[in-house]
């Protein structure tokens, strides 16, 4: 390497560090504060917001678990987010494959229809959705939560999967067709494999969106055994008489699993492409 490129990359390194450390500080400080504040009673948070807990207590957590029924909510959250994410990702990849590699004219119509879904807010369909679900008996069932989750996840997932699969070389598919594989086999054996990086991205984003979703679970279910974490947390985040300690404890419980998920899934986002299936 010449001296010039070395100095260039050194200045890039410095820029990188500054930018990244700034970002890190902005992100980490409030989270740390939330974490230790969750061990303080409300009175102490009000009177001394910054101070480390003088007598750390689990009281907020105990109260949050007792009133928020957090164990059940937690399992529900995993179930709602998990099953709908798996379904969304599979359905979206299948649709993405169909819309990009079959060459039918109707594809662009269906694609535009899916993109339209990106523009629709949950608020504008929630009441019709409630009426529909009560009339077909889906209200207050887990399926009644998962189906809307899938539907609202699809537009973005279809968009990402089509834009990714479009980049998969046609030659790969044509060769398989010549070898006598059916399209369904091609989907399972080739498309799913080569889409690993975008699959992981889609899954993470989808899971996150569903994990923090409030309005649909809240509206489309009733009863504590159906609630997800955000609904439980919201039940004690009333605006009139807030209890920060309790809220923080519940929020910690809601946020930590996401950190773990990221740490676990992160490898597949970044390394998923190492298989070499698509190195031309």
């Amino acid at each position: 390497m010449s001296g010039r490129t070395q100095t260039i990359s050194r200045s890039w390194t410095i820029v990188s560090y500054i930018l990244l450390i700034l970002f890190t500080l902005v992100t980490i400080l409030p989270v740390v504060w939330m974490l230790y504040s969750s061990f303080k009673p409300m009175g102490e948070i009000m009177l001394h917001p910054l101070r480390l807990p003088t007598a750390p207590t689990w009281e907020n957590y105990q109260k949050a678990f007792k009133y928020g029924n957090l164990v059940v909510s937690f399992l529900n959250s995993i179930f709602y987010s998990g099953l709908s994410t798996v379904s969304t990702v599979l359905l979206a990849l299948a649709a993405g494959f169909a819309l990009t590699k079959f060459g039918f004219k109707s594809s662009s119509v269906y694609f535009s229809l899916f993109t339209l879904g990106l523009l629709i807010t949950v608020n504008s369909v929630i009441t019709p959705l409630f009426i529909m679900e009560t009339s077909v008996g889906l209200y207050n069932t887990r399926l009644g939560v998962i189906l809307p989750y899938i539907a609202f996840g699809l537009p973005m997932a279809v968009l990402l999967s089509t834009s990714y699969i479009r980049g998969v070389p046609d030659a790969l598919i044509e060769a398989a067709v010549i070898d006598g594989a059916s399209y369904i086999q091609i989907f399972w054996k080739i498309i799913l494999i080569v889409s690993t990086p975008v699959l992981a991205t889609m899954a993470i984003l989808n899971f996150l969106g569903n994990w923090n979703e409030f309005l649909m679970v809240f509206t489309l279910t009733s009863g504590e055994n159906m609630r997800s974490l955000p609904v439980s947390i919201n039940s004690f985040a009333g605006r009139l008489n807030e209890d920060y300690g309790l809220q923080f404890a519940a929020l910690v419980v809601g946020t930590i699993p996401m950190f773990i998920l990221y740490l676990v899934a992160h490898e597949s986002v970044i390394k998923g492409f190492g298989e070499g299936a698509l190195k031309e």
């Binding site: 979206a92 299948a94 649709a95 229809l113 899916f114 879904g117 629709i120 399209y183 369904i184």
Partner: peptide, 14 residues
């Protein structure tokens, strides 16, 4: 490949 996604989506959003 297309219909499962399309039908859920049409029923719930469109």
């Amino acid at each position: 490949l297309l219909l499962p996604a399309l039908l859920i989506y049409l029923a719930i959003i469109i």
